[in-house]
Design a protein around this nucleic acid. Structure first.
Length: 785
RNA sequence: UGGGGGAUAGUUUAAUCGGCAGAACACCUGACUCUGGAUCAGGCAGUUGGGGUUCGAAUCCCUGUCCCCCAGCCA
């Protein structure tokens, strides 16, 4: 783990914690599904993140079932989750846990919170609690039960556990802050009464902990270091921290949030997926159109393909929607190297080779792999007088650039002969083409194409009588719109279901060699896509699922353009009222002294309103400014430095808490004003001051910023930098002027802050302008001039 | 509306805490090909708007805009 470059923000956090020894170098993550549904591709992102981090940092990842709600959870889901995580290629060994195993500890810890006066039993009903919670703009009101004694709370809580009360009679709540702007902190619920048999603990409990309480404690119990969850839990972090700060000390687990995955043309919420299953819009959780892990597996996608996809989409905090093409492409990239090629005809058109002897069958050698795949192997394919080719490989009226078969034209049968279409037989009634009568060129087998045949495509085919009839299921996106969750007003996501999301071809033909294909084996049907043998195969009938099709450059060209481009939303023109500056304006309106100082700054001291505004928002800032000015600094410098640097460092504190005084800053600014220090040097000094490293005078002395670099020294450093970057120098000379900033940065790093960047740039321009002495290809030699 | 989070090519994302805006997918050209696949070469295209500080800003300051989350005894 040397390089942090390219790490997502969570890995970077973990990396820093490992470096700093925050957890003695330990890394423990967890994947915490609730067993109330099947895992989907969004979970795969989380699984890859949590297990991936554990692998990369030599840590562990726990599989924990977050089962705190008996009403929705079930063993079936536990088993499906185990199966899916394992299938994705992750191993948790003995690190499998259940929140339900912690019920007793959770309960004891809750009693402790009660004893410490941090939790209470509330006897308000659901409606009452809701009313007392307030709204996002109004604070909540305390429940009349909030001030019960510890004894009473303890007694009630124990009787809750003992089953003395019906559902909803009481709850245990944390004593939070009812006025907290974060709604989650307004006395969050810790326990509720549920007389409901739990799938693991049966009737042992009738009170169940809430997520916000059970989750952090479970993390702590297991020694988790980094608790990674999705963005919608950001507000819950406050309770997470509250719980663990009260029950455990540092080092303790901390929560980090990332954006969940959204995929175009599908839905990703468990509720909606459950609906699709229960209402039979799909055949089950493992319907090949479902974004579930089970569905993807049935579809024929490999775990490696899914992991490749997860790697490519990355991890961030930005809400995003990933294009379905990204998934499809990862799947293809994975399958390309592992699926042998075979021929299949999905929509057959009969071809008779008129000059091929009836009754003769010729078995031709055919490679399984194209040249560019590093695998070998072949099978034999039967050729006979009667064949099928793809209907779409023949055209009576071909579009421009057509390279397949036309009347009178030739085409290569893949792995076999070149044929010519001599006659087209049509159904007199419908006009439909029913048969092609062709002649083959016996001399064309294995011969490379002659110039005249060069532009023909090699099409797939099967021998009509020898081919194996199979069922083929072609899957397409489940929904007709990219985001079914956000359709028109009042429309359910189900109204966007794609009626053509599956097409079953009851009788397609494949090479006889596939007769022995096992369930789950994957092939590329040449020019069609990747297919897998479905578990519905049985008896004499094989069933193939299309996993993903192949890009078809010709088809997309014919269709016109590529995918539609989403228009960015137009931004309304500016206007409106700024809240922070508004606030300052209100302050000034109520404070004549501030108002007069604002007027003075703008009218007689030459500041713009934008500069004067932040300076006059409070009296302490104005007083600070006065001290800076008294020390002799110019108004302009004082205003800029206070606005851009001091106010940032003060954030959330008072001016008095700054580790330096106005006089210090004034002194520093004087040196800038009179040229003693460069701006760059002053920034450096200021940074030290802000870090509490002493007075400006002391810092200048300590860093050796007094005095200056001689022009000669500087010129030498410039030359040295240019010598180290010959390629960049060449680029610059050929016109990439914006490299000057990079050169400047390099020299400044070498010279330290006391060099004047303006002087550096002047020297750089000079040296770079000098002609490369006739050795443009060897710019290294330019260094010592 | 209070609070929390977010905004970099069409999409998903990098950029060593102020110094070369880089990649992948998509799209377009071309080469190659017994898959209109793959591969290879090239191209199009970006810092949410406006001001400021600085030699230099995606990054710092000010000020707008847009998007997401929170008022379950779900997780």
């Amino acid at each position: 783990m040397e390089r942090r470059e390219g790490m997502d923000f969570i890995r970077e956090r973990v990396w820093r914690d490992v470096q700093s020894g925050r957890y003695s170098g330990r890394v423990a993550t967890r994947f915490p599904p609730e067993p109330n549904g099947y895992l989907h591709i969004g979970h795969a992102k989380s699984i890859a993140l949590n297990f991936g981090i554990a692998e990369e940092f030599g840590g562990v990842c726990h599989l924990r079932f977050d089962d705190t709600n008996p009403e929705t959870e079930d063993m079936e889901y536990v088993e499906s989750i185990q199966r899916d995580v394992r299938w994705l290629g992750y191993e948790w060994a003995d690190k499998q846990f259940f929140a339900s195993d912690y019920y007793e500890q959770l309960y004891q810890l809750a009693e402790r919170l009660i004893v410490e006066g941090k939790a209470y039993v509330d006897s308000l009903d659901e409606e009452g609690i809701r009313r007392c919670r307030g709204t996002v703009t109004e604070p909540g009101q305390p429940s009349p039960y909030r001030d019960r004694s510890v004894e009473e709370n303890l007694d009630l809580f124990r009787r809750m556990r003992a089953g003395e009360f019906p559902d909803g009679a009481h709850v245990l709540r944390a004593k939070g802050d009812l006025a907290a702007p974060n709604m989650k902190m307004r006395d969050p619920l810790l326990y509720r009464i549920r007389h409901f048999a739990h799938y693991r603990t049966g009737n042992a409990w009738c009170i169940y902990p809430m997520y916000d309480y059970a989750h952090p404690v479970s993390d702590a119990l297991e020694g988790i270091t980094h608790s990674i969850c999705t963005l919608e839990f950001e507000n819950n972090r406050a309770i997470y921290d509250w719980t663990l700060d009260n029950l455990y000390g540092e080092p303790r687990p901390h929560q980090y949030e990332f954006a969940r995955l959204n995929l175009d043309y599908t839905v990703m919420s468990k509720r909606k997926l459950l609906q699709l299953v229960e209402e039979k819009h799909v055949s089950g959780w493992d319907d090949p159109r479902m974004p579930t892990i089970a569905g993807l597996r049935r579809r024929g996608v490999t775990p490696e393909g899914i992991r490749l996809f997860c790697r490519r989409i990355g991890v961030d905090k930005t809400n995003s929607r990933v294009q379905i093409e990204a998934l499809e492409n990862a799947i293809r990239d994975d399958l390309n190297a592992r699926a042998p090629r075979v021929m299949a005809v999905l929509r057959p058109l009969r071809v008779t080779l008129t000059n091929y002897p009836a009754g003769q069958v010729e078995w031709l050698e055919a490679e399984y792999w194209p040249r560019d795949i590093d695998q070998t192997g072949s099978r034999r394919v039967p050729l006979a007088r009667a064949l099928y080719i793809e209907r779409s490989d023949f055209s009576l009226a071909p579009p421009e650039d057509w390279t397949r078969l036309v009347p009178g034209g030739e085409v290569r049968l893949r792995h076999a002969y070149v044929i010519r279409c001599d006659e087209v037989v049509t159904d007199p009634a419908s006009g439909e083409v029913v048969e092609l009568r062709c002649s083959y060129d016996p001399d064309s087998l294995g011969k490379s194409a002659t110039a005249s045949r060069k532009r023909s495509t090699a099409i797939q085919w099967v021998a009509a009588d020898e081919a194996l009839p199979v069922e083929v299921r072609l899957y397409d996106r489940l929904f007709t719109v990219p985001n079914p969750d956000e359709g028109e007003e009042g429309k359910s996501f189900k109204e966007y279901l794609n009626p053509g999301s599956v097409e079953v071809i009851g009788r397609a033909y494949v090479e006889p060699v596939l007769a022995e294909a096992a369930v789950g084996s994957r092939y590329q049907f040449v020019r069609h896509g990747y297919f897998v043998v479905d578990s519905d195969s049985g008896g004499s009938l094989l069933v193939f699922n299309r996993i993903v099709d192949l890009p078809d450059a010709f088809a997309s060209k014919l269709a016109g353009k590529g995918r539609e481009i989403r228009q960015p939303v137009a931004q309304p023109a500016e206007g409106g009222v700024g809240s922070i500056s508004d606030e300052r304006e209100r302050v000034r309106a109520a404070n004549p002294w501030l108002a007069s100082r604002y007027a003075e700054l703008t009218e007689t001291l030459g500041l713009t309103p934008e500069q004067a505004d932040p300076l006059t928002g409070s009296e302490e800032v104005v007083r600070f400014l006065d001290v800076v000015l008294a020390a002799g600094a110019s108004v302009r410098a004082a205003a800029n430095w206070i606005n851009n640097d001091v106010l940032r460092d003060r954030k959330g504190r008072s001016m008095a808490e700054l580790p330096f005084s106005g006089a210090d800053l004034g002194e520093l600014l004087c040196w800038v004003d009179d040229g003693t220090l460069t701006t760059a040097a002053a920034k450096r000094v200021y940074a030290e001051m802000a870090a509490g490293q002493g007075t400006p005078r002391a810092i200048v002395a300590r860093l050796g910023l007094d005095g200056s670099v001689s022009e000669g020294e500087l010129a030498a450093m410039v030359a040295q930098v240019l010598a180290m970057l010959p390629a960049k120098v060449a680029e610059y000379r050929s016109g990439r002027q914006n490299l000057l900033g990079m050169f400047t940065g390099q020299v400044m790093r070498l010279a330290g802050a006391k060099a004047d960047p303006r002087q550096v740039q002047q020297l750089l321009r000079q040296q770079l302008a000098e002609e490369p002495t006739g050795c443009g290809e060897h710019p290294t030699e330019m260094s010592d001039r």
